[in-house]
Write a protein that binds this DNA or RNA. Structure first.
Lengths: 212, 212
DNA sequence: CTCCATTGCAACTCCTAGTTGCGTTAGGGG
DNA sequence: CCCCTAACGCAACTAGGAGTTGCAATGGAG
């Protein structure tokens, strides 16, 4: 409480704008150069800022990247409640697709899977994001089970993984250009698998053998 | 044919062993340091070779990585023919899992998704690998359709993508430790989706609405 | 055993990470 | 509106890895 009235110790003024510009420039460089080729001077130039300004706020190149990414770990997929499983899944899938299609989201997702994902903070953030998404998707499964749309033993984590896998695969891995119906495809697959009881907890002894 | 008898122009002798050691060291460094942190001197030391020896065979760090990866693009998933769709899919999924679980395969796959995937040669190789896998998986679908196990309009590319997506997702993206039944999970999902007609060509107007 | 292709080695240049000291500027409080 | 100071710009560093070159040493094939 020693600087309560004047408060000159906290970062104020134009410093904020510069830092925001640096963070944005970092994401932009991540997107079109990649983590391995990202250079602090490149970021500084892109932000219209001198190199030392960057180093005054961030100790290393890695911490700069981590901080720029961390900004976007919070805003994430909401929990839909449309009254039906299919439309809930569609909302989830579309939110996923959008979160990896817009420039910033694509930069973040790509970076998390690239060499930047080896940074401990990024790896842990990635785990937190997936755990959070699974947690948010849980009510969708609960409500679908209550409606009788899904087997009672359906596992929310399995269901979310089944929904997310085709999205990640098509957008980040196979990367084929025909990606317009990515969300819809994920919904179809997840719906079929879930209804067939292929996404139940524990073991795979569920009723999936039988009617062809 | 000018050097048919003496043939001193071609690389012979111990050069081969050194190059093999360098390639192996490159993969090892890719696996436990990553592409971004990979250093030519590190590779050379690990291979028990001097830096200049590396630069005499490979012009740049990038070409070294590309060449080390390219060695493993050829050996790929074979086409199973077990007489039933489920066991065929199981064979495919297990081959996929194995190809990304052993150290070398994991290094190759991880590198292809990391910043090394931005190298044009690697990106094109990745496309070729996926296209080749889809082509190899095609007979599985054809035979399953002939047996009446699948709808006639089932798309081999969609089916392979549906099988591969959960494998990639669980092994490389979500990376949760409970990954023993990765292959089996992929089989269950793909089987359910394919039987429900969710993996047909073109549009999604197939018979997937109805029985819950 | 001999020869020469290949390797080891040292000494370079260039680029980027990261640091330091000092002069300059911007923007908020008075 | 002016001034004060925190934050910035700038130049000049060190350290290390990419990539190159000339020369000496060596090891494998004939």
């Amino acid at each position: 409480m020693e600087s309560a009235s004047s408060t000159p110790a906290r970062p104020v003024g134009r410093g904020r704008k510069a830092q925001a510009a640096v963070r944005a420039a970092t994401l932009a460089e991540l997107l079109d150069r990649g983590y391995a080729e990202l250079t602090v001077e490149g970021v500084a130039q892109r932000a219209g800022v001198h190199k030392t300004t960057v180093y005054r706020r961030w100790k290393t190149r890695e911490s700069l990247v981590v901080d720029a990414l961390a900004e976007h770990f919070t805003t994430d997929i909401p929990t839909p409640d449309t009254g039906a499983l299919e439309s809930d899944l569609r909302a989830l899938a579309q939110a996923l697709v959008q979160s990896m299609t817009d420039p910033v989201g694509k930069a973040v997702q790509t970076a998390m899977l690239s060499d930047a994902g080896r940074l401990p903070e990024v790896a842990e953030a990635r785990r937190r994001v997936f755990a959070d998404r699974i947690r948010r998707a849980e009510p969708v499964v609960v409500r679908a089970v209550e409606r009788g749309e899904l087997p009672a033993e359906t596992d929310p984590a399995e269901l979310f993984g089944t929904l997310a896998a085709p999205v990640y695969f098509h957008l980040l891995i196979s990367a084929d250009p025909a990606v317009e119906d990515t969300a819809e495809r994920a919904v179809r697959i997840t719906l079929a698998a879930a209804r067939a009881g292929a996404l139940t907890r524990s073991r795979h002894s569920a009723a999936d053998d039988g009617e062809a």
